[in-house]
Design a protein around this nucleic acid. Sequence first.
DNA 1: CTAATACCCTATAATATTTATAGACTTTAT
DNA 2: ATAAAGTCTATAAATATTATAGGGTATTAG
Lengths: 138, 138
Amino acid sequence: MLSKKTKYAFHALTYLGKHRDQKTVLIQDISEEYGISHKFLENILLELRKAGILGSKKGKGGGYYLIKDPKDIALSKVIRLLDGPIALLPCVSLNYYEPCVECKSEALCGLNKVMIQVRDEMLNVLENKSLADILDKE
Amino acid sequence: MLSKKTKYAFHALTYLGKHRDQKTVLIQDISEEYGISHKFLENILLELRKAGILGSKKGKGGGYYLIKDPKDIALSKVIRLLDGPIALLPCVSLNYYEPCVECKSEALCGLNKVMIQVRDEMLNVLENKSLADILDKE
DNA sequence: CTAATACCCTATAATATTTATAGACTTTAT
DNA sequence: ATAAAGTCTATAAATATTATAGGGTATTAG
């Protein structure tokens, strides 16, 4: 399951997507809209900014804004950033690969093979769907 | 990611599948083979038995054994049993549904729609692949 | 210039979940 | 009888997630 962090990130991105006419959006506006703790959301927005998804402006009149076109923000990118691996096993993760400690041989692991399939099916959706697809439906 | 509990369950099932010629297999044999704590594994096997996947025999000469044909043990069943929901959001879970607290309307949630797709893609593999598919490849 | 505003950053506390352990009990073969 | 092996419930330990605190820094309106 996605963590709250990731869910909040999607909410924030959705909100920013809906308010692209404004130059900037306050953290507070987003946190009030969804009932998210201001400080918790702050950390999340900061991560999104560091990842190049959001821009920000300091000082009076400042706030956050989308720096990319919504269709260029793949859902997989957001999930990986806040939640880590999408795959169900570390040994099949493309971005966070680690061998399974108790596994003698990946080549001989039947579970490994199936989980590669699951990962690919998930990515087939998550890499190709973007923030734009979410905005479309709201 | 799958929990250790679920991974251990798959290891145990694989081991039992490979030793179907024996009447029963000891917890200890499995725990030694994979370096899993005996007591932890005990709880997992118990859950698998209660779910009707394994049978057991008490007393001297006892142990665990597969009660079903490996091809009739869907991977989804094992994951749901030990890990809970397969879906990435509670609001799209078929077996553990819960509304998202911060969500005003599911019908108007763009994330909800996409996550239904992800769930279906995952289930497409996990419902149709079974323990037999894992055993085949080892 | 300066004071208010709002993001930036690090540390830490609170909570929940996962993982692991303990120990007494029941059943069975010999 | 007794030793072997699963059953069951409770609890402890470890880890991860969620939330909070508080000062720092840049910006800008006036």
